[in-house]
Write a protein that binds this DNA or RNA. Sequence first.
DNA 1: GAAGGGCGTGAGAGCGCTCTCCCAATCCTG
DNA 2: CAGGATTGGGAGAGCGCTCTCACGCCCTTC
Lengths: 326, 326
Amino acid sequence: MRRVTLEEVARVAGVSRATASRVVNGASTVDEALRHAVERAISSTGYLPNIAARSLVTRRADAIGLLLPDERRMLGDPHLASVVSGVTGVVRPLGVHLVLMMTGPGTREQALSDLRCGRLDGVILVHTYPSDPVPRQLIAEGLPVVLAGRPLDPMPITYVDVDQTAGAALAGRRLKSLRCGKIATITGPQDTPAGQDRLTGFMAEVPDAVVVHGDFTRQSGAAAMEQLLRCCPDVDGVFIASDLMANGAIPVLHRGGRKVPDDVAVVGFDDSTAALTSEPELTTVRQPISDMAAEMARQLLRQITKPRSPVTSVVFEPSLVVRESG
Amino acid sequence: MRRVTLEEVARVAGVSRATASRVVNGASTVDEALRHAVERAISSTGYLPNIAARSLVTRRADAIGLLLPDERRMLGDPHLASVVSGVTGVVRPLGVHLVLMMTGPGTREQALSDLRCGRLDGVILVHTYPSDPVPRQLIAEGLPVVLAGRPLDPMPITYVDVDQTAGAALAGRRLKSLRCGKIATITGPQDTPAGQDRLTGFMAEVPDAVVVHGDFTRQSGAAAMEQLLRCCPDVDGVFIASDLMANGAIPVLHRGGRKVPDDVAVVGFDDSTAALTSEPELTTVRQPISDMAAEMARQLLRQITKPRSPVTSVVFEPSLVVRESG
DNA sequence: GAAGGGCGTGAGAGCGCTCTCCCAATCCTG
DNA sequence: CAGGATTGGGAGAGCGCTCTCACGCCCTTC
C-alpha cells in the first residue's frame, strides 16, 4: 500500500504542487475554484501530509517534551495526570505532540539533545531539583523552556507557579478562624521554593506556630506528626504542607487518641487526590494544576513561535477548599 | 547559530557523506582509521543527526503513542505512572519517543491519522471500552498496536494482561484460609473483561459468596459496601475487585462499627497506591504493571520492526501481597 | 490606450539524510 | 601470476514537503 503524496493530490486536482501545499496549509491567496478542486482531491485520495518532510523544511518538530523528575517520586505524584491533561488540552488541537520523559540516568541529557537536534521544539520542566544544571543550559542556548514552579535560584526563565506564600497564609487564617490555640505546621523540604514559601507564608500569619520538618512524602508526614505529638501534645491545629504528608499524619493523630477535626484541626496543601482518600477528607489549599499546566503550554508555544521573547512568568492564586478535617 | 550537518562532518573527517552516515549508524564495514576520523569530527563539530531528515527516508518516526481513556477516569488511575515508566524504560534507550494522548473528542481519530501519516510507528491502547471501533480499524490497516488488557470481544490483536481469574482465586483462597465464614465480593463493571474475570475467578473458589456490584470507582465501592452491610450484616470477609473501591469501602465498614481485619477481612486487587493510603493498609492482589507495560513496549516494537508478525499475547501471573487488612 | 500595480500560480531549489549502485583496491586461490 | 571473489568507499538519486521567485493576468488610473 503506497502512501499518497502532495504531488499526486496536485495531479488529481490539476494544479501545481505549490498550490496544493497552499491549500493544505490554509493560505488565503488561493482561488475558490482551485481550493475546492484540491480539497476534493485530498479527500478522494485520502491524502495525509508527511510530517517528517514538512518538519525537515519548516524546522519544527511540532512536539514538546514534559520532563518529569525521577520515577520514584513521580509514581506517587497525583498531580501528574492533571498536568498532562492540562498540557495536552492546549497542545493537541494545534497538532503538537506531548512527549513524556522521565529523569533516569542520562535522560535529562537525552531531552537536551532532542531539543538541540530539533526533535523537540521545547520542554516543560517539572520539579527541577536545586542546582539542576539543565535549566541554565537551556536558557544559555536559547531553547524554549518553561518551568513548573519557581526555581530556587533566580534566573531569567519563564515559570508558572501558584502563590505558595498566599496559599499558606490562607491555611493559617483558617486555623485561626477555627479558634485553634496551639497551632503547628509540618513543613516541606526547605531546599525547595514550595517548601520554603509555604513555611514563610504560614509563619507570617501564625508567628508563634510550632515548626516540624517533613519532606512532602507520606512517611515523613507520619514521622513529623509523631514528633509533634511528643514535643507538643496540646496542639489543636496543624497546617501540613502537602496532602500526601497529611495522609500519613492523620492516622498517627488517630492512634494518638485525637479526633480530627474535633481535637486537632488539619489543613493540607495541594488538593490532590490524597485529600479525598484521607479520613476525614482534607481541608486543603487548592492549586489549579490543570489551568497552570495549560498556561505552561501556552507560554512554551509562545516561546517557540517567537524565540527569545521576554521572560513572563505567571503566578496563580490559590484557594481554600473546606472539607471535614479543619 | 547554524546546525551542523552530516556533510560538514564528512568534510572535516575527509570522507564522503556516505561513510559518515555509516559511522553514525554503526555499520560494521568501515575502516578503523576512517571511523575514528569521523568520530573525532562528530565530537569536534558537535554534530547531531536531524531526525526529520532521517525519518523522511527511513519512514520511521521513532515515536509510539500511549492512548489513554477519557481524562476523568484516568485522573484517578494510580496505574498510569507505572505504565508510563515501564514503557519509557524499554523505549527510551532505543531513542524512541513516547507520546501521550488522551481520549477527548476526536482524539482517537487523531491517533489514527498520526499512525497513518507516519508520525507514530505504533500505539499502546489502554482500557478500550466495549465496542470501541479503534482496535479493529488498526488491525484492519495492519498498523502496529498492543492492547493493555484482553479485549472484551476476541480479536486477532496482541495484548498484555494479568491472569485476572487466577488473581481473584488467590483472594478467595486467602479469605478462606483466614477462616472467614460469610464471604462476599464487590465486583467491577461486568462489561469489562477484568470485571468479569475477577468475579468468575473468585466464585470458582468461593461459590457461595454474596455478590454486590461496583464499577471500580471509589464511590461505587462505598455504595456497594453500604448495600452489603444492609443485606448481609454478618459478613466477615470481602474481596473487593479494585483497591480504589476498597479505599471507598473501608471507611463505610468503620462507620458501621466493624474493625478491619478483626471483624471483617478485606482483600483488594491491583496493588495500586490506593492500597497504601487505606487504613489499615490493604492486602491485595498485585499486578506487575510496570513489567507488563515493558512487555507491551517490547511487543509493539517487535510489530514495528516486523510488520504483520503473528499475534502473541502475554499473560502475567498475579501474586498476593499480604498487609494488614486481611 | 498605455503604463503601473496587485494578485494568483507554477517552476524549481533545496531541507539533511539514507541507501543503492558502482568502482577501485585488496585478497585469495589454483 | 592471472583470474575471480570480496571488501570498503564515493557518487548521486531520491524521500515529500515548503517557500522563494518570477511570470502572467487583470484591474486600475491618467
